[in-house]
Design a protein around this nucleic acid. Structure first.
Lengths: 100, 100
DNA sequence: TTGATCTATCGGGATATAAAGATATAATAA
DNA sequence: TTATTATATCTTTATATCCCGATAGATCAA
């Protein structure tokens, strides 16, 4: 739990949106062949299309969120799936409530 | 409540420290003549001395935290006192818990 | 009024972040 | 093997943030 790293990761409109979209992935992204987006996450290209930014930028954003611990990664074949790390988000809420 | 503005304000080690020091001001700052630091806040020069940064930098940091709604200001004569806005911090905790 | 003190603001150089295109890597398909 | 697809990394330009010194306001003391 590195609060500074987390707050930096949250200091960007698009990254906040990505976290929000991933709350209800089936509502914001098209169906995937690879597997249930609730379980394995959403692949980078779907997130990129939704964000309307370049592939490299979105890839960087996802890594930023992952390094902060807010997203989990699952790799299968040539795909990379990202989903929320609800555990970490709960820890963050607890930190803000008790320590900030 | 502007989450992006708040997260940007929290994306700095010194600003996080200032928020922490102001949780127990009498523990971290010398006594003030102007009034009880719990009630009116701590003056800029005390915070500056503790932070070990220039006066202009600390003044900017305090404004950043205030614009985000995390600090409250009280002006008396030539002094400016800052204290935590516990209400806003509670709102932030609730936001993270329910909306992030 | 003059001088001292406290704080805010301005301007600037250094560093970090934003966001893109180009390229590399790795897996799949033909 | 070669071509294609998905993602990551590299490089670069533009913008934002960090942090300072200098200066400006505002208040208080003499």
């Amino acid at each position: 739990m590195d609060p500074l790293l987390i707050f930096k990761a949250l200091s960007n409109e698009t990254r906040l949106q990505i976290l929000d979209w991933l709350k209800e992935p089936e509502k914001h992204f098209p169906p995937q062949e690879g597997g249930d987006c609730r379980k394995i996450g959403v692949c980078v290209s779907h997130i990129q299309e939704k964000a309307g930014l370049s592939q490299s930028t979105v890839s960087q954003y996802l890594l930023t969120l992952q390094r902060a611990g807010l997203l989990e990664v699952y790799r299968y074949g040539q795909w990379t799936y990202y989903k929320r790390n609800e555990q970490k988000l709960k820890e963050l809420a607890a930190f803000i409530q008790h320590d900030l």
